[in-house]
Design a protein around this nucleic acid. Structure first.
Length: 850
RNA sequence: GCGAAAGUGGCGGAACUGGCAGACGCGCCGGACUUAGGAUCCGGUGGCCGAAAGGCCUUGGGGGUUCGACUCCCCCCUUUCGCACCA
């Protein structure tokens, strides 16, 4: 017998897959397609097992679908632009491109050594001009449609990364990448108008039934739709001329409480604040207070508790519903970039307003009464924020709050003082980055023509090769005169190129379509190809992308749709967010020194054992703790498979199919196990994706196979000089061959190298891909007898074995006989035969025995 | 604070539609084979009582629905994650 040496067979099969381009695909309308995708990788250097778990999961799904006859697209690529490359360049004097390409080469080798079945001929890297030129192409289209626009604005700034961050990239007030507290800068920036799709992105979440609810919820919260009204409060004129036309517009979701609006609060950033300051008695003091609040903004506000503060502007506005003047204050907790930057304060019905009013002695008016008690403003301890009935609200008094909202909104509109509106938390996506290693923004600024898109024939705008990466916070490209100074494409006069580069999330927002047609040099992709492959049927990656990448991708897929290149809305049909791999209780990271290098494990146990272990240890969505002994267990299992298959092969390789043979009971039992295993493993892998139980089912089958062989005197002893098994009975050989072949095929998505090798040794020379998946025969899988537990008063008291088609009455009779001692002297109150799976006899003490 | 998910042996986990709790693996214990075993094969392994047969308890805690609850409902505890002044 031969021993299991994974390293030899793994290299053999990896070479063969490469030589035969085993996973290459083309469009084939005669077969059902399946697009299986794992989030592509940032080429950081070395992949650890936490990274590769995701690729293993996708590979199980891809390989299974392939064997089931689907035309499977399973590509991989590199999210290759980004800051780490540039930082490494500054630190180590290596060009970002060199650093990136070297990392890609290493990581590609790691994935190939794991036997992931990628269509490598479709590999893409976003840092190459043949990819990023299509970012630029799309940018110019978005520019023409005003979906890309430039404006000066307060943006999030990371001091450490020296660049702008999108709102989605600010986590707990810090940079998503390095955690440095975010500061605010006022810069000219490019934005993508994702808000134009806010409603659609929100509504379509309902169609994502195969996404984790958690991700859907996070996106819903992120988009943050709220329905309400804008209402204009006219400013009571001060001495200054021309001011009488001013109004303060507020956004409220509770217009029904407007009769209780006893003051108005402005964000420190609100434009009218400067005018109020200028017109005030002490403009400098006024401005100083505003400046203090603005400085608190974000960092202080987002990271910790900040005291609610405000000051009186000394000005008043008219509440357009009461007609009464109310004071205007500036408050540090009112956000300048949400709604209108101004709110009407209703202290009786909003807790923040209530606290503010108490702190500064501002009036509180109750205008909503609950149904079960009577509120008095003086006795109020907390704001009443629930629904109720309006009081002290002129003609609206007596209306339920929800009805009042509709009527009062209509009233405001009729009077021209406001209107119903929808407000989103989602903001436009800021994409300008003041760094080198990204896609140049294809815009030229001309003094006479303004902002001009680079024409298609001049694309790509290639990133110039530079050697100085300032890291100072201005764009390195601005120091390259031959890049900056160009003629205007429209008028030909000297003009300046935009020197910012695009957020790398642009790259990853549409790569899944590029895989469908990765070398197209006329378009980002051929619409016909995307129409064949799209949408992605199975997409997996980390939950950390729940709002960043996944919301941007949903946005971009709609932009492509509206450009007429794609006909579907949603790019990803089914989403799986895989759990992380921990070691010593922490996420693996180089800095913590707790990474597990897949190559080390492959050298010791083989890629198949590593794959099997990672899939077996827990369901894909769950976090797992790395365990060396678990991996050893997987290796032991594969050795066990190898040993018995290797032992049996000479005796079964030529055996016929067992169909139609007259079998002994133990042979029938083995066939039953085989077909039951086929059925369960198939369902567990797809659709259930309980990959861990698929493995455990295969383990029980191997145990059964050993037990069967033990009974037949066929068990391998595990000695080197052991002769192969000899089987005289044709039926035994037949059922064993069927069992062994099923085992090898069912294991193959998990352990492709071992399976290919054993499959070949079983006499098949055209590879697993030609083998196809298995179909369980339900008649064979059906048990002849079933064991039924018998309960008395819900407690297990015995078991009976009956023919599988026994009548219910016979089951009951047998059950009663089996538990006679527990039922003696009792009255049977009720009997339940549950779906032929369990019997419960309900008894109570017989009358007269007490 | 708001929202969501989860809580099962020493450990990872299983239990599909309310029907035998603890599959499978790790670890541990024992046996066989062996000069030897950290290889291999076989067996045991939730807790308590018992020599055994068997009995009792057991899915975070408490209540409820049901013939029957890990599963459904209510309350509480814990953990993890998300949101966190969004008017």
């Amino acid at each position: 017998m031969t021993e299991y040496h994974p390293q030899d067979i793994e290299q053999k099969w990896q070479r063969r897959w490469q030589e035969t381009r085993a996973f290459e695909v083309t469009e084939d309308p005669t077969r059902p397609k399946f697009y299986c995708l794992e989030m592509f990788a940032y080429p950081s250097g070395h992949a650890h097992v936490g990274h590769v778990r995701n690729y293993m999961i996708g590979d199980i799904i891809a390989r299974t679908r392939r064997m089931r006859g689907y035309n499977v697209l399973h590509p991989f690529g590199w999210d290759a632009f980004g800051l780490p490359a540039e930082n490494a360049a500054i630190k180590n004097k290596v060009h970002p491109e060199q650093w990136t390409l070297e990392n890609i080469a290493h990581m590609k080798g790691q994935l190939q050594r794991l036997g992931i079945s990628y269509a490598w001929e479709r590999e893409i890297a976003t840092c190459l001009p043949n990819y990023y030129r299509w970012n630029q192409w799309l940018f110019t289209r978005m520019f023409q449609r005003r979906l890309a626009y430039r404006r000066r604005s307060n943006v999030n700034w990371c001091e450490s990364c020296q660049t702008v961050l999108a709102n989605e990239q600010v986590v707990d007030g810090g940079c998503w990448r390095c955690g440095t507290p975010v500061t605010i800068r006022d810069l000219e920036q490019w934005f993508f108008r994702i808000t134009a799709y806010a409603d659609e992105l929100l509504d379509a979440l309902g169609s994502l039934t195969a996404w984790p609810e958690k991700v859907v919820m996070m996106q819903r919260n992120w988009i943050g739709r709220s329905e309400g009204a804008r209402v204009r409060f006219p400013v009571v004129a001060a001495a200054g001329p021309g001011e009488s036309a001013d109004t303060v517009e507020v956004f409220t979701t509770r217009i029904d409480t407007i009769f209780g609006a006893s003051f108005v609060l402005l964000a420190p950033e609100h434009p009218i604040v400067d005018r109020f300051a200028a017109a005030s008695d002490a403009p400098d003091a006024f401005r100083a207070r505003v400046a203090r609040f603005r400085a608190q903004d974000r960092t202080a506000r987002l990271t910790g508790e900040i005291e609610k503060e405000g000051f009186d502007t000394g000005r008043q506005v008219i509440n357009p519903f009461t007609g009464q003047p109310v004071p205007v204050w500036v408050a540090n907790f009112v956000l300048g970039d949400y709604g209108t930057g101004a709110v009407m304060a209703v202290p009786a019905h909003d807790q923040r307003d209530f606290e503010f009013a108490r702190k500064y002695g501002l009036p509180v008016t109750v205008v909503i009464q609950p149904l079960d008690r009577m509120l008095a403003a003086e006795a109020l301890e907390v704001a009443f924020e629930d629904e109720g009935v309006l009081v002290s609200s002129a003609t609206f008094s007596g209306l339920p709050a929800h009805e009042a909202r509709a009527r009062m909104t209509a009233d405001a509109a009729a009077r021209g003082i406001g209107e119903g509106t929808v407000q989103y938390r989602l903001k436009d996506w800021g994409v300008s980055r003041q760094r080198y290693w990204g896609t140049p923004i294809p815009i030229i600024q001309c003094e006479s023509c303004g902002l001009v898109a680079v024409p298609d024939e001049d694309l790509p705008v290639e990133l110039p090769n530079i050697t100085e990466f300032s890291g100072r916070g201005d764009s390195p490209l601005a120091y390259v005169p031959e890049f900056v100074n160009v003629p205007c494409p429209t008028c030909g006069r000297p003009a300046r190129r935009e020197t910012d580069t695009m957020d790398t999330f642009v790259d990853s927002s549409w790569y899944y379509y590029r895989f469908c047609d990765p070398t197209n040099d006329q378009l980002p992709f051929d619409p016909a190809k995307v129409s064949y492959w799209g949408p992605v049927d199975f997409y997996s990656g980390g939950v950390e992308h729940a709002i960043l990448h996944l919301i941007y991708s949903r946005f971009f897929s709609r932009v492509f749709r509206d450009l007429g290149l794609v006909s579907i809305d949603e790019p990803f049909s089914r989403l799986l967010t895989q759990g992380m791999v921990l070691r010593h209780g922490a996420v693996m990271s180089k800095s913590k020194g707790n990474v597990v290098d897949p190559d080390e494990m492959i050298a010791k146990y083989g890629a198949d054992a590593l794959r099997l272990y990672v899939m077996f240890v827990a369901p894909p969505e769950k976090e797992v703790e790395w365990s060396d002994s678990g991996l050893e267990g997987a290796f032991r299992f594969l050795s066990r498979v190898w040993r018995i298959v290797d032992h049996l092969i000479p005796a079964i390789a030529d055996a016929p199919q067992p169909t139609g043979m007259t079998l002994e009971p133990d042979e029938r039992a083995l066939r039953r196990k085989t077909h039951d295993t086929i059925d369960r493993v198939t369902r567990d892998i797809d659709p259930r994706m309980h990959l861990n139980t698929a493995v455990s089912t295969l383990m029980t089958m191997v145990n059964e196979l050993y037990a069967f062989c033990e009974g037949q005197g066929l068990r391998p002893a595990g000695r080197d000089d052991e002769p192969a098994a000899v089987i005289n009975r044709r039926e035994t050989a037949a059922v064993l061959r069927e069992a062994v072949e099923a085992l090898v095929l069912l294991l193959s998505p998990f352990t492709p190298h071992l399976s290919e090798e054993l499959w070949e040794r079983l006499g098949h020379h055209d590879g697993l891909s030609a083998a196809g998946w298995l179909q369980a025969d339900p008649i064979v899988a059906r048990a002849e007898e079933i064991e039924i537990p018998v309960q008395v008063n819900g407690k297990l008291r015995g078991r009976i074995t009956v023919p599988v088609d026994a009548a219910e009455a016979d089951i009951l009779a047998a059950a009663q006989a089996a538990v006679v001692s527990h039922v003696a002297g009792m009255d049977v109150v009720k009997t339940v035969v549950a779906n032929r799976r369990l019997v419960n006899i309900v008894v109570r003490p017989a009358k007269g025995t007490l």
